[in-house]
């Protein structure tokens, strides 16, 4: 009896033992930095001095009231349109269009071309697009070719166009991922459903609306979650292309956190903004997750 009880106890703890290394890593590299960041957010500290000055919620008040920090949060929300809405929409169009050519060489080439931007690091894409947006770059050259030379400008230096110009790079990067995920989802939809719809007289639009869209809810949920997080926590593309400028017109929380921490030596303010950003991500993503899960259970 005693032996069996000892064995049961061992079995109960053996799992934890196997998980211990991973838990240790999680504790050291995830939990500890998060707790430290929350702790620092209540202090005025330059990141170097031995002493820190307790300021309570002052850094949070600044994050939510200072126009510069507040506008960075707004820009992150605007980026959801470029990083999420457009890529998912394009992805759906691509998936629906390529549904019929999913097999064969043409389908493979098409999928590869669509996915290609996804394998590029954001930093590389930022540099490349910066060249393309420059005065003598590809975008302005094309505008001159088609007789729209009057529209040519330094796109990332324009207060009006810098945010959409940078946002479009996010669209370009995310469309590949969304397209591939949605194309994989389309492949899992039973062809009989399309056939039945056709027999019932459904055209391409109705097939898309009544068969493709409901069948892709799970994949759309994944796309939306990933790209919304990418939009809200964007850093590399903005940092490489504009560093938040001109003025503060493309400033996003990721770049602002970097500036506060490593240019202004305001670790407390940087941590407070980072915590606000994390809470914003949770506040936006959690309802989305619930929405797509609820739809799953309904179907």
């Amino acid at each position: 009896m005693a032996g069996r009880s000892r064995r049961r106890r061992w079995h109960r703890y053996a799992g934890w033992l196997f998980a211990l290394p991973a838990l240790l890593f999680y504790g050291v590299f995830e939990l500890h930095p998060i707790i430290s960041a929350v702790n620092y957010s209540f202090y005025k500290w330059d990141g170097i001095a031995a002493t820190k000055k307790w300021v309570g919620f002052a850094n949070y008040v600044a994050a939510l009231t200072q126009p510069q920090q507040l506008s960075s949060l707004w820009h992150a929300i605007v980026f959801i349109f470029f990083f999420t809405v457009l890529p998912v929409s394009f992805g759906l169009v691509v998936a629906a269009s390529l549904r019929t050519v999913k097999a064969g060489a043409y389908g493979t080439v098409a999928r590869t071309l669509v996915f290609l931007p996804q394998i590029l690091p954001g930093a590389a894409a930022g540099v490349a697009w910066n060249w393309m947006y420059s005065k003598d770059g590809f975008v302005n050259t094309v505008l001159h070719w088609v007789g729209l030379g009057s529209l040519a400008r330094g796109w990332v230096g324009s207060f009006t166009f810098a945010l959409p110009a940078v946002g479009f790079v996010g669209t370009w990067l995310s469309t590949g991922l969304c397209s591939v995920l949605l194309m994989a989802g389309v492949g899992n939809i039973d062809p009989v459903l399309y056939e039945a719809a056709r027999v019932d007289g459904a055209g391409a639009w109705h097939q898309f609306r009544r068969v493709t869209l409901p069948g892709l809810r799970q994949q759309i949920g994944v796309c939306v979650t990933i790209t919304v997080i990418a939009a809200l926590s964007s850093f590399d593309v903005v940092f490489l292309m504009t560093q938040g400028g001109p003025g503060y017109s493309t400033m996003v929380p990721g770049v602002e956190v970097y500036n506060l921490a490593f240019n202004d030596y305001q670790i407390g303010s940087a941590c407070a903004l980072a915590v606000v950003l994390a809470l914003l991500v949770i506040a936006v993503v959690a309802p989305l997750q619930r929405f797509f899960r609820a739809d799953d259970s309904e179907h």
Binding site: Y133, S134, K135, G154, W155, V156, G157
Partner: peptide, 11 residues
Amino acid sequence: NSDANAIQQTQ
């Protein structure tokens, strides 16, 4: 230059 706000030193 019209693109001053869009370029860095090297450009």
